[in-house]
Design a protein around this nucleic acid. Structure first.
Lengths: 229, 229
DNA sequence: ACAAAAGTGTTGCGTATACACCCATGC
DNA sequence: GCATGGGTGTATACGCAACACTTTTGT
């Protein structure tokens, strides 16, 4: 126990909603908790903010401790502060999201015993989550639905080289609806942020698609300009 | 002093950015502080969140205590958590904004001695603000610039009956640029949320303009549909 | 040859933008 | 009669949506 001024009586936490795309499915990163409350439940990676770190720094540290991931750009999207959202006291949580490219190489290893394990889970098959994390996730999904129409965040989900059909799949998964192939291609190419490569898809038993790369330099020039789908 | 679990060592506050429109000028509501730190400085209305109130409830209470205003719909837009943003300790602040109709009738009376007074100040002539409130204001202005293009929040700034030119002035002030009169009118009328009244402007020394009303019922039907300027 | 996905254009429609003059009123 | 803002239309360009067939490749 520690003596503090009576106003310093709240806890602030961070919760992270990380979206990933793998095997044609949209996934999010969850941890299996190893501590009460909600021990053994699935939950969003989250923990308390340290006294000497900013919210953004804290989000990075917490994600790293719980999953082993680092160098992820996360964006704050909402702060949840209902009185009874945490069973052990007043905890206000700041929610962050990020889009992440999934490669088989990145193993998920919690560095603390606070989480038993971290795992990518298909959003179509979410387990019951602890706290109000289902609500936090729902708001995060809404957020990226709106955002993906204006900013090319979808490319962060894809590998370095990808086909246009893969991009379209990502959009369709996030928006939850089918898009017209020709219109989609026209639109996505018209932004001029994709670079066509002299390279084709390999190992498929049908006509190989052309690979593309996201061109960050061109994107930087357009930044701020609204992109709409 | 009070003993608490060591994790409950932060303070959470709310700061409110209230926009008003009066005399053809865009204003925001500031208080003159009567407490350290930043005693005698201007600042956004803000204070600490109570342990037994949600963030939204807290925002309403704080605004009421500092300005006497009530029944204002405010929306959360960002949470600021730099380590040293408050000189007396770690304080994380959740920022809210609202758009408000200014009538001469509503007197501003702080109900606590924490503020000497509250006043509407032209945004073109802001004084130096305490804490990081200039930054919080800047982000709030950005937010409503984006939002006014899609949602008819501008009407919340106007009196019940208004002319189309007044609406255009509000848009021009917020967006910081001139708009074409004919195109603006076509657009704003095309949404079908304005009701033309059988009434004209009075007391002007030129052709009196037709008055309009915002039609909340029609708006409710369209809600969710994006409106773009 | 067939299965599976890649790749490709046109048309119609609605919305955004650019642009200039006459009208009503009060003084 | 003049100053002040109110009020109106048209032409062009652009973006969005709808729509179906041919090509390539592996098996």
């Amino acid at each position: 126990m520690k003596e503090v001024l009576p106003v310093f009586n709240s806890a602030v936490s961070i919760d992270c909603v990380l979206f990933g795309f793998d095997g044609g499915e949209l996934k999010i990163l969850l941890i299996e908790r190893n501590e009460e409350p909600f021990k053994d439940w699935w939950a969003l990676p989250g923990n308390l903010v340290g006294v000497n770190e900013s919210l953004d720094q804290s989000a990075l540290r917490i994600l790293h401790e719980l999953t082993g991931l680092s160098d992820i750009y996360m964006e704050q999207y909402y702060t949840f502060g209902e009185v009874n959202r945490h069973p052990q006291g007043r905890v206000i949580t700041v929610a962050y999201y990020a889009m992440l490219r999934l490669g088989g190489d990145k193993a998920l290893k919690p560095l603390t015993s606070y989480a038993k394990r971290a795992q990518w889970i298909n959003v179509k098959d979410l387990p019951k989550l602890g706290f109000d994390h289902q609500h936090i996730f729902d708001k995060g999904l809404e957020k990226i639905k709106r955002r993906i129409k204006h900013l090319p965040i979808a490319f962060e989900l894809l590998p370095e080289k990808f086909t246009l059909t893969q991009v379209q799949h990502v959009y369709e998964l996030i928006l939850g609806k089918k898009l017209d192939k020709r219109n989609f291609r026209k639109k996505i190419l018209s932004f001029g942020v994709l670079k066509e490569l002299d390279e084709k898809q390999k190992g498929v038993s049908f006509r190989a698609a052309t690979l593309y790369k996201f061109d960050k330099r061109k994107y930087a020039k357009l930044f701020g300009k609204a992109i709409s789908f």
